[in-house]
């Protein structure tokens, strides 16, 4: 097991992260005109800080090594847009908001998605099954940026039940609509995955044996069917995490939530290069880290994985 973890972290996750950082570093230096040269609206003191920060007076390989060293210390440099803030300050303020939103959406998606998937699998080829699958197809196809305005129109403007935007420190009323929009896609996907694997598990011999022994269906589900049926869902957690961060870009922009997604979009619109670069690497690192964690978790649950 230790060997598996070692291989997964040091031979897969870390090199991937290094490639990501290297690619972004050199891509940006390929950009026409150079990203750090021709911005008219950057105050001179920021420009000086940038020049020092990115070691623009040194050869490229020293810039690269210095950049790696900075990142290793978790230092993303100054923001172009906000003169007195570093990227770190802004990210520290925004990250808890995004994580809170993401984790809530994630929990809701898991609860509803898994129960809907199991229900559909148990009632396979009945109207319940068709309803769940139909709704989940809508959930996959309907984009966040269509659902968000429609929900806001219905619940905030027509019914006046919920606020149409804002965060207010994460008060419950402000969270409902963003979480609903954010988890929609994952409910659908998790329901589909759960249904598929549950149907497969339910038709396997050990379930037939359990039923032949006369065990009640609820007990069979809890004791025998759940664990193997949920394995594919666990392997979906990595991509789901990334998706929730990605999806939160639209949700945060629409509902005016001060999280990482909004920071990223504003950075991109304002050409705040260090911000965009820093967030890309940060999210990349989180993605890679999370995928590794999910793999290792999977290795604990399913011993077959460790061998390959």
């Amino acid at each position: 097991m230790l060997k598996f973890i070692f291989r997964r972290v040091f031979l897969e996750a870390l090199p991937t992260l290094l490639v990501l950082i290297t690619v972004t570093f050199f891509l940006i230096r390929l950009a026409p005109g150079g990203p750090f040269s021709s911005e008219a609206n950057v105050p001179p003191e920021v420009m000086a800080a940038i020049a020092a920060k990115y070691r623009l007076d040194q050869p490229v390989w020293q810039q690269y090594l210095g950049y790696l060293a900075d990142l290793a210390r978790g230092d993303f440099g100054p923001s172009f847009k906000y003169k007195d803030f570093s990227v770190n300050d802004l990210v520290y303020a925004a990250a808890p908001v995004s994580f809170r939103l993401g984790i809530m959406a994630f929990i809701v998606a898991m609860l509803i998605g898994i129960s809907a998937g199991i229900t559909a699998a148990l009632k396979q080829n009945t109207w319940v099954d068709y309803a769940v699958m139909g709704v989940s197809m809508v959930g996959v196809v309907l984009p966040n940026f269509v659902l968000a305005p429609v929900l806001a129109l219905v619940f905030a403007i027509w019914l006046k039940w919920l606020p149409a935007g804002g965060w207010e420190g994460g008060a419950l009323a402000y969270v409902v609509l963003p979480v609903a929009v954010l988890c929609k896609h994952y409910i659908s996907v998790i329901a589909r995955i759960t249904r598929g694997s549950m149907i497969e598990v339910l038709s396997s011999p050990f379930i037939r044996t359990a039923r032949a022994k006369g065990l009640p269906m609820g007990y069979i589900l809890r004791r025998h069917a759940m664990k193997p049926a949920l394995l594919p869902v666990i392997s979906y957690l990595g991509p789901a995490f990334v998706g929730i961060i990605t999806g939160s870009v639209v949700v945060e922009t629409f509902f005016g939530i001060p999280g990482i997604g909004q920071l990223f979009v504003n950075g991109a619109l304002n050409r705040d290069y260090p911000m965009v670069l820093g967030l890309t690497i940060l999210v990349g690192a989180l993605t890679i880290f999370f995928n590794a964690v999910v793999d290792i978790l999977y290795g604990f649950i399913d011993p077959r994985i460790r061998i390959h």
């Binding site: 991937t16 490639v19 891509l27 991109a268 965009v276 990349g284």
Partner: peptide
């Protein structure tokens, strides 16, 4: 391919759009 697949694609595309117009 695996390395590329674990990149945050959307962030990378937006990064490209920011830097290259």
């Amino acid at each position: 391919l695996e390395i590329l697949a674990s990149f945050p694609v959307m962030f990378l595309v937006i990064l490209l759009m920011t830097f290259f117009g």
